[in-house]
Design a protein around this nucleic acid. Structure first.
Lengths: 226, 226
DNA sequence: CTGGGGTATTTTGTTGACAATAAATGGCTC
DNA sequence: GAGCCATTTATTGTCAACAAAATACCCCAG
């Protein structure tokens, strides 16, 4: 159960965190209709802060609200998920370019270190699941913040990634291609280390495009039913 | 004064609309610290719905909140404003591409019609101010929705445009180049009408890049002090 | 006169009760 | 028996009072 991560600054923040992780992990399934009182007892909250959190979640597109009719978790169709990747492609392309221009040498070294640890995890075979789920997220997270573009990072980290992760938890998006994905990551970091913004953008766009095509293929094969 | 636009479905929606327009129009200045009780009396609201609205506004990045210390309107620096245009460049580039692929012939005709009316306004000289402020917004709005990419439209219309408009109200972003901007708009629509996604994306990116450079120049000249 | 500490005040955060609206159920008519 | 309308019920929206926290002010010491 998604308890409050440490102590949040305020009850509303706590509610927000709880609900967000609950939605992302699938504890609250897409399309599920949820009552306010039920949520209150479930997360030990009162309705005031809860409603504030619900507003924030709605504003971020994680749930939809119909006046007087309750709130339900947003359910993203397969087509919409693919559209999300189209957005990621251009936004993360920009992030990679700006990261190449602005990341400190230290940050780049750390980035390379995380890739090393990812590689070890993959070699240990069973690490695959973790790698795609969290390692991949970690990589993209670092580049988003490395762009030094506050709004870009906010939109990626606070908006898009949550929606993507929501589905990554139940379907292994890049399953079967962890080595390939890692190699793509390496090339991107290489370009960033060489301060080659053009190349970093190009490689990142291609990387995300590949992930999108991978999902598309799986959907066609019927492996993924969203 | 920014009264409730018609009757919103709920008090919180009303509060949200009021505050959003108040921020965008500059009625609430950037950096201004605002107390909850003051806002309540100002917009005839009670604190419950207000707080819900504040949460939504914060989530959208229009205001910042420090626990127990109040809320103040976000103030975007010149550098951050330029970063916003970098994001617009890639996102609206994508929007233009997808619009070229997906807009109906009817929508394209309407788009051309709006450009005609914009042209008339410019010819009537005094229309300049309106054109840049609302006509330009109208154009970009139509393309965002025309992309048929729900999340992309949501991010552009619900997030970025409000921040940009916030500054467009006090500084004339594309002042001095209305004819040029219109010509660029025409070319973009032309590419969309020809279903040339590549070209539409390219032209849109160049258009927004030009707008960014224009602002950059003004800032260097000291005309704009943000 | 200036700096630090403590109290007072203001403002935010939270709570539980109340009102209004939509969904659900049951009864009535056709 | 089926469909529609009214009533009931449950749930959401709203409110005003209470508690907690941070800022501001004032007093005192150096």
């Amino acid at each position: 159960m998604a308890e409050a991560t440490l102590q949040s600054q305020t009850r509303a923040d706590e509610a927000f965190d709880c609900l967000q992780t609950a939605i992302v992990t699938g504890e609250l399934a897409p399309g599920e209709k949820i009552g306010e009182v039920e949520l209150c007892s479930r997360f030990n909250l009162t309705r005031g802060p809860l409603r504030e959190a619900l507003g924030r979640l709605e504003s971020r597109g994680l749930l939809v609200r119909r006046p007087h009719a309750g709130v339900k978790v947003v359910s993203v169709s397969a087509a919409e998920l693919l559209e999300l990747y189209r957005i990621r492609e251009v936004m993360e392309g920009l992030a990679a370019r700006q990261a190449a221009e602005r990341m400190t040498d230290e940050e780049i070294a750390e980035l390379q270190a995380t890739l090393d640890s990812h590689e070890k995890m993959i070699e240990q075979a069973q690490g695959q699941a973790y790698y795609q789920a969290e390692g991949d997220y970690d990589f993209h997270h670092r580049i988003a913040t490395g762009s030094r573009n506050a709004k870009l990072a906010q939109m990626l980290l606070g908006d898009l990634y949550y929606m993507v992760r929501m589905y990554r938890y139940r379907l292994s998006t890049s399953a079967g291609r962890p080595h390939l994905a890692l190699r793509e990551h390496r090339r991107i970091v290489e370009a960033i280390a060489q301060r080659d913004g053009d190349l970093a953008e190009f490689l990142m766009k291609r990387h995300i495009n590949a992930a999108r095509i991978n999902i598309e293929k799986k959907i066609e094969e019927g492996v993924l039913t969203i």
